[in-house]
Amino acid sequence: MSMSDNQGPLWEVFVQKKSGQPYVHCGNVHAFDKEMALQNARDVYTRRNEGMSLWVVPSEAIVASSPEDIGSFFEPANDKIFRHPTFYQIPDGVGHM
């Protein structure tokens, strides 16, 4: 087997179910170029009407947080309850706010 014999780079696939909704990660494909990545994503992940729009991103372009980061990244948000509407008291009789 020659060195160039491979399955192509890995891509991350995101599908938008319908317009207005967020793009959601649904899986991966192998593909050699952008056009192929898009077509492969279409052929693999939208066979059952799963979406109306697709993103494909080279997997190597993904930057991910590490499990070790959980404490410093995400836990500081736990006590910022003033960011949530239920933190505030609104008097009765002023309608919906």
């Binding site: 399955q7 192509g8 494909v29 593909a31 192929m36 077509q39 492969n40 052929d43 693999v44």
Partner: peptide, 11 residues
């Protein structure tokens, strides 16, 4: 020739 293309042609 590879898995993704197998699915594509079948479509």
């Amino acid at each position: 020739p590879f898995l993704e293309e197998d699915l594509a042609l079948t479509n």
